[in-house]
């Protein structure tokens, strides 16, 4: 198992290099001089601008930190590959660079934003796991019953609704309609994540965004759970279990569930990775101060260090989550657990 994990970690390296190279190239294809972005509408004094170019590694400097000039007196631009190496070097030292527009380091920004994204993702994944697996189980066990019909109906609707639209509907109903009907006695917050001055305790702010974020995946989880359990119940080993004299409940919970859960766990795990990468739509609809919204904002303002840093972080998070999923998969499925070391040879 350990060798398997190490092997997977080593596999991260080429993926990581590939992704960062592509991003780095892309940001330089997009037109626009970053320094003018930093300046915004104002024209910067030449000395400040020069300093910025140096600190952002855009131009070559000599040993004393003075900018180099070519024969025409222009700055010598640092070639792309060199900038990439500088970027990677800083990255390995945990430095994601400075935001062009926020006057903060990218590290500081993500340290501020990531907890909100993680909090939202964890809440949503709990909803997804509990409600999705529960509904799928009931639906499969009580196949063709009223419950099954209800679950099938709801999941069919949910998978067809875009997340942002569901978010807006929830905002309308719980935030505006309920507030009017109850004369402001009961409603839910529809924007932001609270704070010291907020009118609700912090967790209340999670309700609507988490439901919005979890909705579609919960529906998928329920469907996968249902179809997997029904499929597993048709397997020969279930008949063997019945032939031993096990009751239906024992057959389902001892023999079928573990097998049926394998694909469900994979789906939920991968979904968790996706949620940790920042749910751009949900975060935007709810003004959620997470990384998704931040990256969205950075893209519109061409704040490349944030975009680069954000995506780099996401790549790492997704790869780690996928590894965790695969490892937990192996705990559920002995065929994989023992198959893995053989792959090494």
């Amino acid at each position: 198992m350990l060798t398997y994990i190490i092997k997977r970690l080593i596999q991260f390296i080429p993926v990581f290099i590939g992704v960062t190279i592509i991003l780095f190239a892309l940001q330089n294809i997009v037109p626009g001089d970053p320094i003018s972005i930093i300046g915004g509408d104002r024209a910067l004094p030449p000395a400040v601008e020069e300093q910025l170019r140096i600190s952002n590694h855009l131009i070559e400097v000599d040993e004393n930190g003075e900018p180099l000039h070519d024969e025409n007196g222009n700055y010598v631009e640092t070639p792309l590959w060199k900038r990439y190496l500088i970027y990677m070097n800083n990255l390995l030292h945990g430095d994601l660079g400075n935001s062009y527009t926020r006057g903060m380091t990218v590290n500081e920004i993500f340290a501020q934003k990531y907890p909100y994204t993680i909090g939202l993702a964890v809440t949503a994944i709990c909803i997804e796991a509990v409600v999705g697996i529960g509904a799928g189980l009931i639906s499969a066990i009580k196949r063709y019953s009223v419950w099954d019909v209800i679950v099938t109906l709801i999941t069919s609707i949910l998978v067809a609704i875009p997340a942002f639209w569901l978010g807006m509907l929830l905002q309308l109903f719980f935030g505006i309609f309920l507030r009017q009907v109850t004369n402001g006695a009961f409603y839910l917050p529809i924007s932001g994540a609270g704070g010291k001055m907020a009118e609700f305790p912090g967790w209340v702010y999670y309700i609507l965004p988490a439901i919005t974020l979890a909705a579609v995946s919960t529906a998928y989880t329920a469907r996968i759970m249902r179809s997997q359990l029904l499929e597993v119940m048709n397997q020969d080993y279930i008949r063997t279990a019945k032939a031993k004299g096990l009751s239906r409940g024992k057959i389902i919970f001892h023999h079928a569930l573990k097998n049926a859960l394998i694909p469900v766990v994979t789906y939920i795990g991968i979904d968790f990775g996706a949620m940790l990468s920042g749910a751009i739509l949900t975060e935007t609809v709810f003004n959620w101060p997470g990384v998704g919204y931040e990256i969205y904002r950075a893209i519109t303002q061409r704040d490349w260090p944030i975009v680069m840093g954000g995506v780099t972080l996401i790549v790492i998070v997704v790869m780690v989550i996928n590894l965790v999923v695969d490892v937990s998969y192996a705990f559920l499925d002995p065929r994989i657990r023992f198959g893995a070391p053989k792959d090494q040879s």
Binding site: Q235, D236, Y237, R239, T240, A241, K242, A243, K244, G245, L246, S247, R248, H255, K258, N259, L332, D333, P334, R335
Partner: peptide, 28 residues
């Protein structure tokens, strides 16, 4: 009843199934 049959199955009457490759639960 199903309950009574459960005491018969595997205890009074046991069965070996046709396909041994799929008749055992892979995760136990």
């Amino acid at each position: 009843s199903e309950r009574e049959m459960q005491t018969v199955r595997g205890n009074d009457i046991a069965m070996i199934f046709q396909d041994p490759m799929t008749a055992l639960n892979p995760v136990y």
